[in-house]
Design a binder for these strands. Structure first.
Lengths: 125, 125
DNA sequence: CCGTATCCAACTTGATACTG
DNA sequence: CAGTATCAAGTTGGATACGG
């Protein structure tokens, strides 16, 4: 008596592992951070400046990524301290996916903009 | 004297077309809806039940997708009315990307769960 | 059946200030 | 330099009720 899912929502339902994995990779910051880290280990402020994100948000996102085993954090006990982040081997598996996401976005950004303009034009009578 | 971007944030900065495209595809609902629509035209309530999402959110997401030219809306003037949604050809270009996102999520969900458990174990002394 | 209008809870983002 | 704490503001998700 197996109980096959009635809804796709069950396998991707809130709180399921696959849903959380989707949420992780389908996140603006994960995509952008992974893109930078693909170039090698990167320091906190470096990441911050390259992405133009607030320190708050960056710190939280990096902690989440570290928690999920996707990013490794390395502290060099110098003065002042230096901290570098890099992709783990698990995190490296995101690279092809992220690359496709970015490619799709760049390729279709213009068409989407036009569709949006046309839609908005048609809405206001 | 071209002025190459100093920040990656410039090309993916808030409000830029590429950033909006990333946000569109890197969204939980886009991924799930596209996955269902890949199977052919689907009715509103069908989508709602399969995904386990509230009607409110589904309606908003579908309208946004239609506005971006990714999804087409077809109304059959029956009683009661029947409405079907399907991917446009532009929307169809999301399929390979979405498929990769889902595959990655399913493949790594377990590893991520373990990493998370290990991390949480190490945090509380 | 297919939405929209309203209202509300929860989460996200960011600015600022402060610690090691 | 690398964070954390706190607070303010915006966005998202959902429940419910009602209109086409």
């Amino acid at each position: 008596m197996s109980t096959p899912p009635r809804h796709e929502g069950e396998i991707y339902g809130t709180g399921t592992p696959t849903r959380e994995a989707v949420d992780r990779i389908a996140s603006r910051w994960t995509v952008l951070i992974t893109h930078v880290l693909e170039g090698g280990p990167t320091r906190f402020n470096d990441l911050k400046n390259r992405l133009g994100v607030s320190g708050q948000v960056l710190a939280r996102t990096l902690r989440d990524l570290e928690r999920d085993g996707l990013v490794a954090r390395r502290v060099y006990p110098e003065v002042p301290v230096r901290v570098e982040y890099e992709l783990t081997s698990l995190g490296g598996t995101m690279c092809p996916v992220v690359r496709e996401i970015r490619q799709w976005a760049e390729l279709t950004a213009e068409a989407i903009g036009e569709a949006r303009a046309a839609y908005d034009r048609g809405q206001r009578s």
